[in-house]
């Protein structure tokens, strides 16, 4: 029961959030990088990877800067390999919390 789509802007309708790439990125990183702040190589603004725009229906997962829409990260799997094209200029990643606080319950 999704809301009926408005006037169709196909690019906007394909857009997801960086948060949805967390599962794939977890194959690679020991910490959850969706809460990492990333500085865009193009416009220099920072925002959390989870707040980036994600296009998941391309051959790769493509994360784009929410400010200027330039590509920040591409991720693909191919013949048993992971391909990572990380263009972000700087990733600032929250340091891991003690293991006994990993579950916020």
């Amino acid at each position: 029961m999704t809301e009926p789509a408005g006037p169709s802007d196909t690019t906007a309708a394909r857009r997801l959030d960086g948060n949805a790439a967390a599962g794939a990125l977890a194959d690679l990183f020991a910490v959850d990088v969706t809460t990492a702040r990333s500085r865009c190589p193009s416009c220099g603004k920072t925002s959390m990877l989870g707040a980036h725009h994600l296009y998941a229906d391309a051959p790769a997962l493509v994360l784009r800067c929410p400010h200027c829409t330039d590509v920040v990260l591409r991720y693909a799997t191919q013949q048993g390999r992971i391909l990572l094209d990380l263009r972000a200029r700087l990733l600032t990643i929250p340091a891991p919390a003690p293991a006994n606080e990993s579950n916020g319950a």
Binding site: A30, A99, S102
Partner: peptide
């Protein structure tokens, strides 16, 4: 923001 948690290997 609270520190992120070390992820378990997602299996």
């Amino acid at each position: 923001m609270a520190g992120t948690a070390l992820q378990r290997r997602l299996t």
